[in-house]
């Protein structure tokens, strides 16, 4: 499948992310000749161990998360970041997890957005909001280059495209910029050939960056 990079919006120091910035970025994509082509949604759930004795929590992973992608609804992606583990499972794994009762959902985030076509590229502008709230927690951008599935081969093209995209965006003088967390896929046992497991790993890598910028501001 085509290579995809996921970028996160990093607000400039002393500023916060807000819907005005999201609208401005959206306009930029349209001015960049992006043609709206549907919606996308990803749900990310953070799990915590269901412990009888909370003092034992250090023995269990603290950053276990599950990712559901709208484009592949019958699959579920499990990630333990500290251990560099990603697994793909049929979505029935959620029923098994419920029955096992060993881990419970701590918080869930919805990543909803619009997809734009730009020739060989697709861009998805995504707002990150908590499951039970409306407040914007961050902005993500997926950039996909349709002709290539090798990460290595796509890298120069992606870099060039993102450079042009940043230039377009810079004309708006928005307080922040898009950054990339750049996870090392080989650490997760993933090959150069792009898959949705790579997407899941990029989401898992981008989220701490969003939260770090939120914490920095507060």
């Amino acid at each position: 499948m085509p290579v995809r990079w996921i970028l996160h919006w990093q607000p400039s120091q002393g500023t916060t992310v807000n819907s005005h910035i999201l609208n401005e970025i959206s306009q930029c994509v349209e001015n960049f000749n992006g043609v709206k082509d549907g919606r996308c949604k990803t749900t990310i759930t953070f799990y915590k161990p269901n412990l009888k004795d909370q003092s034992m929590s250090a023995q269990f992973p603290r950053d276990f998360l599950g990712i559901s992608l709208m484009e592949q609804p019958n699959k579920y992606y499990l990630i333990i970041r500290d251990n560099k583990l990603v697994a793909e499972a049929d979505s029935s794994i959620l029923t098994i997890m419920e029955k096992l009762q060993s881990y419970k959902s701590k918080v869930a985030l919805n990543c909803e957005g619009l997809q734009y076509n730009l020739g060989d590229f697709q861009m998805r502008l995504i707002k990150v909001v908590p499951n039970q709230a409306e407040s914007l927690r961050g902005i993500l951008m997926e950039i996909e280059y349709l002709p290539i599935s090798s990460l290595e081969n796509a890298k120069p093209i992606m870099e060039e495209f993102i450079e042009i995209w940043r230039e377009v965006l810079s004309k708006k003088s928005l307080p922040g910029q898009f950054m990339r967390a750049e996870p090392i896929f080989a650490d997760y046992g993933l090959s150069d050939n792009y898959s949705l497991q790579h997407t899941a790993v990029q989401y898992a890598a981008a989220l701490p960056q969003l939260f770090a910028s939120v914490q920095l501001r507060s």
């Binding site: 990603v86 697994a87 499972a89 049929d90 029935s92 794994i93 098994i96 497991q197």
Partner: peptide, 8 residues
């Protein structure tokens, strides 16, 4: 309940 999963 069964779920097909990756090898890890």
């Amino acid at each position: 309940v069964e779920s097909k999963v990756s090898k890890n």
